[in-house]
Amino acid sequence: MRVLVVEDDMMIALLIEDMLIDLGHEVIDLAMRLPRAEELAKSADFDLVILDVNLDGRKSFPVADILADRGIPFLFATGYGASGIEPAYAGSPVLTKPFLAGDLQAAIGRLVAQRPYA
């Protein structure tokens, strides 16, 4: 899978990238702040997104809106857990930090399986 990572913490971003690469995925880009994340969500070419909720104090839901419009699946990765997700995205898959590579792979598997055209 070609994955966009949106994560504001440098260390965690590197970890998620390494996990994805180890799992055989391709990280097409990393956005660490909201403007860059919105930019990439609109224009870049990828299959799914790992989306942090809090980007340096700003919520990433505008990015989720763009992805929902484009029909691109995403999963939230956050320390807030499901309680920090806006009601509009209450049904979206959530990975609670910290997580293992296996958790990430399982979540990606479920996300892909849910797609009607996958």
Binding site: D9, I12, L14, L15, Y80, G84, K97, P98, F99
Partner: peptide, 24 residues
Amino acid sequence: VHELNHRVKNNLAMIQAIAMQTFR
């Protein structure tokens, strides 16, 4: 408390990341 819980988890994820980088 909610925010603190988030930061603790984020810090744990950061420690996990550092451990991965250090020991891989």
